[in-house]
Amino acid sequence: MEDTEIGEVIGSSNTELIAESSLLHNPPPFGSFIKVQAREPIYAVVFNAYTHSMEPNRLAIAYHRSEQELRDEQPQIFELLKTKFEAVIIGYEHEGTIRHHLPPQPPRLHSFVHTCHPMEVRRLTSHLKFFRFLLGVEKAPRAELIAGAIRAAYVVRDCERSFLVQAGKELVKLIGDDYEMLSSILQRIQD
């Protein structure tokens, strides 16, 4: 399943990327780890997703029908909507090792995006330096984003408690002086 693409890059910079989701209404989950396929794959964490009309001057309106009714009665709508997602870049792979810093070039437009394999998530989260990138995101609530990424990694790591402890320590290092932010993240991880 990891091998089928989940999207295609349609906008990118050194720090972020926007991708069009292959499936309508089904972007990768918030806080999940994704990979842009390339000779040197680039890794990122999803921080936003949205669905909208493909044409800027066509607004979505309410039809007061269930989705199934709409699919039966107005099938064209679903061909005119697009789901997109945005992700913050947290590293890339160079000569077989994961680098926890920004890639020298941004992801290429039209590259395919894949969900990270559990093994890749383990490798990516063996160091938690990428929290810094998540803290720099301005377009999403940072506490939610970091908690989301930690939860995603925690599940992949078979719910190892030691990983949570390690993550907590890294957060103390980074935002120990921001008690509110820290406690809000910790609270979200426990839920």
Binding site: R71, D72, E73, P75, Q76, F78, E79, L80
Partner: peptide
Amino acid sequence: SVVLPYGTGERAEL
């Protein structure tokens, strides 16, 4: 061209 299937579960084509 526009192909709009109703009640068939097929995808529309534009």
